[in-house]
Nucleic acid binder design. Structure first.
Lengths: 225, 225
DNA sequence: AGCCCACAATAACTTATGTTAGCATGTTAC
DNA sequence: GTAACATGCTAACATAAGTTATTGTGGGCT
């Protein structure tokens, strides 16, 4: 179903380019087929915040076309291929396929939960907790998408990206990563992340996976674990 | 429609009590009829973050019952009355009332946008920008709900609440409020907030109302302005 | 009235994180 | 191979925000 719809229109983007910009009228819903992207917001003076990451399989803002204009931008991290799902696609589904419609609500609610957790992350966690937490989240999500090995995954984010996502300065991100390395919690080198002791990293980040709602019926079976 | 449904079951809560707790199975959707409430998350060591505020007319997490368990708690600030909307209510609506279903999507998407803006707020804005921004948001939302005068509104949050919402310490919240007072941007006393110069406060908070999506068809007419 | 308690205000001091700058390393293009 | 650029690393220093503690203030009880 999704695959058929996705076949309708696929576009590819170079790394570090915008897929959609704040202020534009949202048209289609985007399904990430491949690569990493992010949602970001920017202040007039240039300060940027990455507010979420999109991994393969993620859908950007279901039904976003109900709003008049984008309040954020979407940009790529790596090369990305995206399927554009038109409005009619969703109208059909909500009319005729209640189980799929429910799955869409699920996706929307989980994304909202992730956004809340980010709020918590930025508001309450220290730099190293925050970094550990973010790495855990990305690892879990990648694993769910079948894109992580037993304790490692590919990791295309630069320290500058991590800075924009965590609200820390680039220098402090570097310090924080050194600290996690020194504690043998991570091995991060050349776009590859290894987590030798996920349990301890989760502890260090006060990470509780409940907000990812991994327990949805049918979901658990798809995950590679 | 909403009113009829709301009549089904209304409960009242004392200030500073929980309406729902993290870990519980979500059952109904809550519609706030009266009073202020908030969504919050808590770390094992007690650190708390308020991740959003609920004002009268707000709906907490539409279709939340699709998830297996709550990943956050809902607590009251003031005395609150709440209507519980059962699952069947939403099933009926999405089956038979597409315009109302669309309105629900709108509510959901705007809440997501607010949550993103909070992420930005915590990640990039300084303490006083952050505080100014939060006050602007609450004022705009109250005005939309018909609960604000020309330049003032009732304001039941304590400095401790503001600290938990902004990720600042109580002491620093106090300092920050003093600073805003000294610049004649706010008058905050006895649960009443006056904004003598909204334009300047918005400037101080780098506040851009676009994320509230006040421009929805039909919405603008209801707002008291 | 007088007590209590939550809330607000300040002060003195500590610390986490930001800033600026310079250098090292790696990757891509020609 | 080497220029050019992006990314990563480190150091020295500056500052915003946190911490602890004390005092003030006002509203609600009995």
């Amino acid at each position: 179903m999704l695959n058929r719809a996705a076949a309708q229109r696929v576009r590819t983007f170079a790394p570090r380019t915008d897929v959609a910009r704040e202020g534009e009228k949202p048209k289609d819903v985007h399904l990430i087929l491949n690569g990493w992207a992010c949602r970001y917001k920017q202040l007039e003076d240039g300060r940027r915040q990455i507010v979420s990451f999109f991994l393969p399989g993620d859908i950007c803002d279901l039904n976003i076309f109900i709003l008049r204009e984008m309040d954020h931008s979407i940009g790529t991290i790596t090369p990305v291929s995206i399927a554009d799902l038109p409005r009619e696609f969703f109208d059909e589904i909500s009319a005729g396929y209640p189980r799929i419609a429910t799955a869409f609500w699920w996706e929307t609610l989980v994304n909202a939960a992730i956004q809340r957790e980010w709020t918590m992350n930025l508001g309450q966690r220290t730099a190293s907790e925050r970094m550990a937490h973010l790495l855990c989240e990305l690892y879990f999500r990648l694993r769910l998408a079948g894109l992580a090995d037993d304790n490692s995954c590919s990791f295309p984010l630069t320290q500058a990206d991590l800075a924009e996502a965590t609200g820390l300065s680039k220098v402090h991100v570097n310090r924080t990563l050194q600290e996690l390395r020194a504690s043998n919690l991570i091995v991060l080198k050349g776009k590859m992340l290894v987590l030798p002791d996920l349990e301890r990293l989760m502890g260090a980040g006060l990470f509780n996976a409940n907000y990812l709602h991994l327990d949805r019926e049918g979901r658990q079976l798809d995950a590679n674990e």
